[in-house]
């Protein structure tokens, strides 16, 4: 297990290293003077000279990369071009908003999806099973930002059940502000998870230990809830881990539509003001988040299911 964990995290680090280097080179490969691009037409010569020295742009590219990594390892993502604040503190100030949105979405959609999937598997080919399947396919198809816009239109603007903008103050108000955005992000996951759990549940129900449980005369309810579901939800863990990038992408749109603070809003605002260090810092942090969560999902899976370890 330890051996597998070390190898998996080694791979994650390698991927992260390549990804960050590619991104760094991409910025440098853009035609034109990066300082000019970063500062835009508003820049004064002194500001340009200062940034050139700060970014070490007068040095050879390998040295620039080394300096960049040196800073990165110390947690320094650069300086906001306009406010002069550190990008690290700006990004980590916004991150909790995005994370709470993502977790709220995962929690409600996984709970509902697992319940629906387990029910459908326990009662295969009934009307409810068919309806769940049809709804699953339809919901999977709905892009998060369209759902966000439509729910904003219906529940916030017309029915006025929920607030339309912001993240709220205090616990209950925050929760109230989370309802619509997390609905928009989670909706497509409900169907996806339900189908996943249904399929793996049906597989598990045919296995010997379930037959044994039946032979012991345990109630069907107990078999489903305790013995089958525990194994059947394994794929959900992996899917959520791998789906982190997808969740982050949806969160960007939900934050824009509902004017919530967060990583997505930060990136979009920074793009419009051409604040490149902030854009790159946010993209770096979200990429890191994604790589780590994928690796974690693999690890949890390997820990719960020894067969996954052997496969690698």
């Amino acid at each position: 297990m330890v051996h597998y964990a070390v190898r998996r995290f080694g791979l994650a680090l390698l991927i992260l290293f390549v990804a960050v280097t590619v991104m760094f080179l991409m910025i440098r490969a853009v035609p034109g003077d990066p300082v000019q691009i970063m500062l835009g037409p508003r820049a004064t010569p002194e500001l340009q000279a200062r940034l050139t020295a700060e970014l070490a742009l007068d040095q050879p590219i390998i040295k620039q990369l080394a300096i960049f990594y040196g800073n990165l390892l110390q947690g320094d993502l650069g300086i906001d071009v306009f406010s002069g604040r550190s990008v690290t503190s700006i990004v980590f100030q916004q991150l909790p908003h995005t994370l709470s949105l993502i977790f709220a979405s995962i929690i409600w959609s996984a709970t509902l999806g697992i319940a629906l999937g387990a029910y459908a598997a326990a009662h295969p080919n009934t009307v409810i099973d068919r309806v769940t399947a049809a709804i699953s396919v339809s919901f999977v198809a709905a892009p998060a930002f369209v759902v966000a816009l439509l729910s904003l239109l219906i529940f916030a603007v017309h029915l006025q059940w929920f607030p339309a903008i912001g993240a709220g103050e205090g616990f209950w108000d925050r929760l109230d502000h989370l309802v619509l955005p997390s609905l928009a992000i989670g909706l497509s996951w409900v169907g996806y998870i339900a189908r996943l759990v249904r399929a793996s549940m049906l597989e598990v129900m045919g296995e010997p230990h379930i037959r044994t449980a039946r032979a012991f005369g345990l109630s069907e309810r107990r078999i489903v809830m305790i013995y089958a579901l525990r194994i059947a939800i394994l794929p959900v863990v992996t899917v959520i881990g791998v789906g982190m990038g997808f969740l982050l992408s949806s969160a960007v749109f939900a934050e824009i539509v509902f004017a919530r603070p967060g990583l997505g809003k930060l990136v979009i605002d920074s793009i419009t003001t051409r604040n490149y260090p902030v854009v790159m810092g946010s993209v770096l942090v979200s990429t890191g988040l994604f790589v780590v969560s994928t690796a974690l999902a693999d690890l949890i899976n390997a820990w719960l299911d020894p067969r996954a370890r052997a496969g690698h």
Binding site: G245, S249, V252
Partner: peptide
């Protein structure tokens, strides 16, 4: 495979935003 995994490691929309911001 390392190449594939690297591309996959960018959250799609974030990657798109970074590229659009540059190009």
């Amino acid at each position: 495979m390392l190449f594939f995994d690297t591309i996959r490691s960018f959250p799609t929309v974030m990657f798109a935003l970074a590229v659009v911001a540059l190009v």
